[in-house]
């Protein structure tokens, strides 16, 4: 009998060993999925999305670009100064306007054209996303977008007609941003502006500035924004003010509305960085808005 018992025990043991595994619960399967990361597949690179809601923060541009095949139509307004009094309806009787289109040639490269009523200026720019903030493999702490823009004033000059070249000004900017949390994003903007022609001998052809901006979400679709530029010491910094803006982003599906108060009436870098005259303490504050409508011109696939 004894050998038979041993045989039985051995078979039982083998059967138990063999069938122990199927009792594992579903949650263990899930854990197995989460812990097993095969070496054959590269770990996913997690690109940070939507550092800012729009391609503009207030006056300044943001690191964001429209995706490939997306066309943005921007309507930007700055009303008159709040301190202009009741007769001017606190500035609302006057307005400076800029209309522009921005098109994503690729997910990285954007081309834009615009026309602003201030000094009847045409502008064009190229914007390139050099680096994108990401987690995971090849993590990148910041996003960097490079901006090069040129502005051409078509204003008729009363005195002697100026050459074409003298009507041009250029801006080069590195936009460096980090989405610190889902709600808070910050951006730094070292900037150089070159103007081919300046009015006085003392004025600078090249103006250097350092900008800063942030976006703090208040709700999922409303955010508080601010941007500011510090003019590096020089004739421009002596004569003009540092531009500052404070506003709200409101997003509704395909539209982004940006409402803000700023001491600058110009809406392109060439105006708001070296030519802002408004003193916040005097009430030289302009109410304004940017409205952005996105159109998908070409699907990605």
């Amino acid at each position: 009998m004894q050998p038979a018992i041993r045989l039985f025990a051995a078979l039982l043991l083998a059967a138990l060993l063999g069938h122990a595994a199927p009792a594992a619960a579903q949650t263990d399967l899930l854990k197995e999925l989460e812990t097993q990361r095969p070496d054959s597949l590269p770990p996913a690179r997690d690109i940070t999305l939507a550092t800012f809601k729009g391609t503009h923060i207030i006056n300044s541009q943001s690191v964001e670009t429209p995706g490939q095949g997306t066309l943005l139509f921007l309507i930007q307004h700055r009303f008159g100064a709040l301190n202009s009094g009741a007769y001017e309806f606190f500035g609302l009787d006057q307005a400076v306007l800029r209309l522009s289109f921005e098109y994503g040639l690729t997910d990285r490269l954007t081309v834009g054209v615009g026309r602003g009523s201030m000094e009847k200026t045409f502008d064009g720019f190229l914007k390139y996303r050099a680096l994108r903030q990401s987690d995971g493999a090849r993590a990148m702490p910041v996003s960097v977008t490079l901006l090069a823009s040129s502005a051409l004033t078509s204003l008729r000059f009363p005195a002697a007609e100026r050459s074409f070249a003298s009507r041009l000004a250029y801006t080069y900017q590195a936009l460096v941003a980090r989405k610190i949390s889902p709600a808070l994003s910050v951006q730094l903007m070292p900037t150089v502006i070159h103007r081919n022609f300046v009015d006085t001998r003392r004025a600078q052809n090249d103006v250097y500035a350092l900008g800063g901006a942030f976006r703090q979400k208040l709700t999922k679709r409303v955010a508080l924004t601010a941007d500011y530029f510090y003019l590096l010491p020089g004739a421009t910094a002596d004569e003009f003010r540092n531009p500052i803006g404070l506003g709200f982003d409101i997003e509704t599906g395909g539209h982004v509305f940006q409402l803000h108060f700023t001491n600058s009436q110009g809406m392109i870098e060439k105006f708001f960085i070296p030519e802002t005259r408004g003193r916040v303490s005097n009430g030289d504050i302009f109410f304004g808005f940017n409205v952005v409508r996105a159109f998908t011109v070409k699907d990605r696939r």
Binding site: A24, A25, Q26, T27, L29, L30, E32, L33, E34, A44, D46, I47, L49, A50, P66, G67, Q68, G69, T70, G104, D107, K220, G253, G254, A294, T296, D299, R300, R301
Partner: peptide
């Protein structure tokens, strides 16, 4: 028994704005 995990950011949309809104 079965288990699935789906990384949400890996959903690719035809329109990048949709993708952003989906995630955000």
């Amino acid at each position: 028994q079965m288990a699935f995990t789906v990384p949400m950011k890996a959903f690719q949309f035809r329109r990048s704005l949709m993708q952003e809104h989906f995630n955000e």
